[in-house]
Nucleic acid binder design. Sequence first.
DNA 1: GGAAGATGACAAG
DNA 2: TTGTCCTCTTCCC
Length: 275
Amino acid sequence: MPEGHTIHRSADELNARFAGKVIQASSPQSRFDAGADAITGARLKQAQAVGKHLLVTLTRQRKLTTLHVHLGLYGAWSYLDLKVLGEVPSPVGQVRLRIQTHAAVADLRGPTACELLDPEQVQALLHRLGPDPIAAGSDESKAWNVISTSNSPISVLLMRQDVIAGVGNVYRAEVLFRFGINPMTPGRLIGRDVWLAMWADLVMLMNQGVRSGQIDTVASEHLPEAMGRSPRIDRHGGEVYVYRRENMPCLVCSTPIAKAGLASRNVFWCPTCQR
DNA sequence: GGAAGATGACAAG
DNA sequence: TTGTCCTCTTCCC
């Protein structure tokens, strides 16, 4: 499931299979019939991730269209290699969009957004997103301008896509732990140096997530094995300090990890390490 | 078999 | 802050 690193991987996967190819599209679920018809026969130029948004540019008869996909909480892409399978399998479950060539199939399930945008709408979307730590050359100062003047908790600011694009509930919980910052700390109390270090940490962690496909944030000296405990892989597939570890001992100080609802999302932190 | 919950975001009040 | 939407998995009976 999707934070920014997942979407960047989706873009890479789609480019590897479909970039430069003429595609067929369909909506087995019938909820994107018109859109699928509109892009069938188009050439897929490029898939690009911006924060949690996926933008796929397609051309047909020299006309440019952009497919915009946002996975939301539980949307997902799955891929099938037709050279291995031999024939095109029927869609399983609720497939909103199927993209296909003679060689490959990509199925999209459960997205919050699956729509076609014109260039003005694409610009409007990009305009309302903050800097993406995964995109090379992103300007962190746009995020700092908001954070340094805001009374909102830093944990809320980190989730705002107009402040930083691509950070979700896991990365925010983990980066705050790594810097010993309490989630309720107002943004304006975060120092410039601390912010720059946090940004650099997000750049490192999220790029690592793009490469590995999972979120690992625990320093090697704090891994359970290094602490004499049995290895534990979290349900989401990576190794984390606090995310979804409520009531479990902190990997650093053994204090039970706390959990609270904030702005309708769960926040996790160590009450001792993050005073 | 059914409820609850999940790495998200939006609108309404 | 609450309600709503989207789909699948996990957990409990």
